[in-house]
Simulated assay, not measured.
Amino acid sequence: MCKGLSSLPSSCLEKAKEMRVKLSHLAETHHKQKVQDGKALQDLDTLLNSKVGRQAFREFLRSEFSEENLEFWLACKDYRVTSLNLQKTKSSSIYCQFINPDAPQEVNLDAETREALLSVTGSPCADTFSNAQQRIYNLMAKDSFPRFLRSPHCMEAIKAL
């Protein structure tokens, strides 16, 4: 023990030990929470359902010039709950913004999926974009999301949780 500490009253030493135990417990609890938050971000569904996670992922995708994937996925999610009388208008809007080869935010879909969408745009239903939305989800899950987990954007999201 250091000479300075041996001269302190035993009550001070006891208080210092109690504080050390409490700080140790607090640090352990904080570490466990960070690990849990990090694990939550390892699941794309959880990330997309979190406002903070979705925003961090959006910023990451923007930095990689692929934000259109998330925007398309969200537009499809919104479309699915659109009333019947607005489906044709929203369907056309989604097609013009994301599917059309000259679209301002064209997403990377295979020709077969693109053709299937073109054939049903005249008579849309709630599931019109389901297949395309799933393909873009898979693209994000297998390509963008693993890179996001290694990025500073992910660390910022974990800190904000």
Rank of each mutant, 00 (worst) to 15 (best):
109 L>H: 03
155 M>C: 03
93 S>C: 08
134 Q>I: 07
6 S>K: 14
17 K>C: 10
73 W>C: 03
49 N>A: 03
13 L>Y: 01
157 A>Y: 03
61 L>E: 07
117 L>P: 02
104 P>L: 08
42 Q>K: 12
73 W>A: 01
16 A>M: 08
16 A>K: 00
11 S>Q: 12
105 Q>W: 06
142 K>M: 13
35 V>I: 15
50 S>F: 02
33 Q>T: 13
27 A>N: 09
119 S>C: 00
7 S>G: 07
98 F>Y: 11
145 F>M: 02
13 L>P: 01
114 R>F: 05
161 L>I: 08
128 T>Y: 01
117 L>A: 09
50 S>Y: 00
1 M>G: 15
42 Q>P: 00
37 D>W: 13
126 A>H: 14
42 Q>L: 08
13 L>W: 00
103 A>H: 06
94 I>T: 07
77 K>D: 14
132 A>C: 03
26 L>Y: 08
91 S>M: 13
95 Y>H: 13
122 G>W: 02
125 C>I: 04
24 S>L: 12
135 R>A: 14
133 Q>K: 09
22 K>N: 06
6 S>D: 12
127 D>E: 14
24 S>K: 15
129 F>D: 04
84 L>T: 08
78 D>Q: 13
11 S>E: 08
72 F>G: 05
62 R>W: 04
116 A>G: 05
94 I>W: 04
53 G>K: 00
30 H>E: 14
138 N>L: 14
85 N>Y: 09
38 G>Q: 11
45 D>K: 09
7 S>Q: 09
120 V>H: 07
73 W>V: 08
37 D>H: 12
147 R>C: 02
82 T>D: 06
12 C>A: 11
110 D>Q: 06
37 D>E: 09
124 P>Q: 06
125 C>K: 10
81 V>E: 05
14 E>Q: 11
141 A>G: 02
103 A>G: 02
51 K>F: 03
39 K>Q: 10
65 F>H: 11
128 T>G: 04
133 Q>C: 10
117 L>V: 04
